[in-house]
Design a protein around this nucleic acid. Sequence first.
RNA 1: UCCUCUUUAGCUCAGUUGGUUAGAGCACCUGACUGUUAAUCAGGGGGUCCUAGGUUCAAGUCCUAGAAGGGGAGCCA
Length: 480
Amino acid sequence: MKRIKIAALLQSNDFGKEVLVQAWVRTKRESKNVCFLALNDGSTINNLQVVVDISPEMHKILDRIHTGASVSVIGETVESGGKGQSLEIVCKELTVLGEANPEEYPLQPKRHSLEFLREIAHLRFRTNTFSAIFRIRHAMTFAIHKFFNDKGFCNIHSPIITSSDAEGAGEMFKVTNLDLNNLPRTEEGKIDYKEDFFGKATNLTVSGQLEAELAALALSEVYTFGPTFRAENSNTARHLAEFWMIEPEMAFYDINDDMDLAEEMLQYLVKYALDNCREDLEFLKKRREEEQKQKAQNERDEMNLIEKLEFVINNKFERLTYTEAINILKKSKANQKGQFKYPVDNWGIDLQSEHERYLVEKHFKKPVILTDYPKEIKAFYMKLNEDNKTVRAMDVLFPQIGEIIGGSQREENYDKLVGRMQEMNIPQKEMWWYLETRKFGTVPHSGFGLGFERLMLFVTGMGNIRDVIPFPRTPKSAEF
RNA sequence: UCCUCUUUAGCUCAGUUGGUUAGAGCACCUGACUGUUAAUCAGGGGGUCCUAGGUUCAAGUCCUAGAAGGGGAGCCA
């Protein structure tokens, strides 16, 4: 008999049919003559209830079954005699595929702390919360490819190992196969990378943007979606040393086209989750509501998870320039009463997360796109404005998460780009290939980077980025 | 990296101004129960009080150092 998945079975409402189900036991509830097994196979947040009449033979089998065991069940679908589910199966054959010793199995049918589950990341997939999160993560991955594919974008696999460390996007992880206990040295005593695998120093990529630009200047519209590595000693709920980033790059797009695409994409992805992950989102909504009860009244969410997601797809993002944002912040009561840790006084300061949160959560109460930042606080490749002071950067700020997207129109003018590289001490020699795209058939173009796990934080309503990636890599932590 | 908090049973936590044998709920085991929904009820077993020093007649509790984790900040996506 062919196995049927629980999601399909629960949807079918097809009674009186014999089926084969294989899954893991979430709970076993036993009384004298009857036993109920709640089974989950990860195809849905919902469990299948299996009713077992306790005969002496069944009793022996049931003794081996505890939370976490894997079982194979042949039974007949019936309309449930109890509340809580419409369909259940009456067990005819019950086989234990794998026992789970209850003295050792760490998951109980009760709420565990996220910190504890992080320590057992190999088993946390088996909880409602994490199975919901990773089904949503899959849906978002798929939706990203679908969004770009439907628009005629080309997916580009940018390299993971790179020899350029000129981007200044953060500390990099070194890639080498040199014997670290016996490093080859040059005459000056420095490490001789000519002896290394690639014949030069290499690192893990911190961004696929520069390579994506090369592809965009031929294929017009491309995107990358790959792992990204930053060796920063960042210990926050929003940073990972290994994370996934989506980086579209579009020829003939100016900064406004760039913003339009970013907004359309985010709304598309959130809508996709609402349309395709409803039950998982409802579960996470309830979960968050429970969590909120622990918090002080003024720290609680104004909207629940579903409302928050619907709000994003139903409202235009607020667009304003850095200069306008500074003026709003300067005049704000929070600033005048000295409630900011970093007071807003002069044009040119870098916005702190408290300032971003004020704009998004207090002032506009919706996602905000900030543009035209001072050139001093942004990257060398961003297009310089006419004023010679600001660049065509755009950051999309989301409630609770902060910067979810960072992007810009790129500097396509060769001389201006070289000038900016000189100002910011970016070595031009290593970047010859990047500069050549401005020498040969340069065009206006734009792009942005979306932190995939930050999107996941928003969509799932989870508070810690370590809980939306299967196996988080953070400083002092690379278990599993 | 900085600030701050936490670390007690498998899990979640309580443990008073330092004082006898360290507690609860859940989980586990045993028993009861004709359909349960994290089933319920009764009983039972289960402890390196994070680690190393120190103060004291006496330390889970106080002091010092360290480790791990949480929250906030910086860096950023």
